[in-house]
Amino acid sequence: MMDLDPRLYEDASVSDNDVRNIVLSYLMHNCFKETAETFLSSTGLKLPVDYTVDVDKRKAILNFVVEGDAVKAIELTEELAPNLLENDMDLHFDLISLHFIELIRSRKW
């Protein structure tokens, strides 16, 4: 791995708008819908068009995983991001492993 010299970034400037977009992206990615909406209203940023649907579906996927329903999580993931599981085999394996564990736990195996 290449070591980066931290001095390269000492004089780098980041605009307030870039910082706001990074924070909003974090909030959206982690399904903090209400916090993101409050952040948007306080900063004057515009709401992305697909924001509500995307966050609601992401939160549903997260809930299915927490509940141990990997099949529904996989189905909704395929609907939201059709090639994601095909391109991220580790994630797909994790979801299939969760399904296998739930089958054993429920004695349906």
Rank of each mutant, 00 (worst) to 15 (best):
L4E: 13
L4G: 02
D5H: 06
P6W: 08
R7E: 13
L8K: 04
A12E: 15
S15V: 14
V19E: 02
R20L: 08
N21T: 08
I22H: 10
Y26V: 14
L27Q: 04
H29E: 15
N30I: 10
N30T: 02
C31A: 14
C31M: 05
E34L: 06
E34A: 10
E34V: 04
T35F: 05
E37Y: 14
S42C: 07
P48W: 03
P48K: 07
V49H: 08
D50E: 06
V55K: 00
V55F: 02
K57E: 11
A60C: 02
I61K: 00
N63C: 09
F64N: 10
V65H: 09
V66D: 14
E67L: 13
G68N: 13
D69P: 13
D69W: 14
D69T: 08
V71C: 11
K72C: 12
K72D: 12
K72G: 07
K72V: 07
I74G: 01
I74D: 00
L76I: 05
T77Y: 00
E78P: 06
A81L: 09
A81K: 03
L85N: 05
N87Y: 07
D88F: 07
M89P: 15
M89Y: 04
D90M: 04
D90G: 09
L91D: 05
D94S: 06
L95S: 01
H99M: 09
I101V: 06
S106E: 05
S106N: 15
R107A: 14
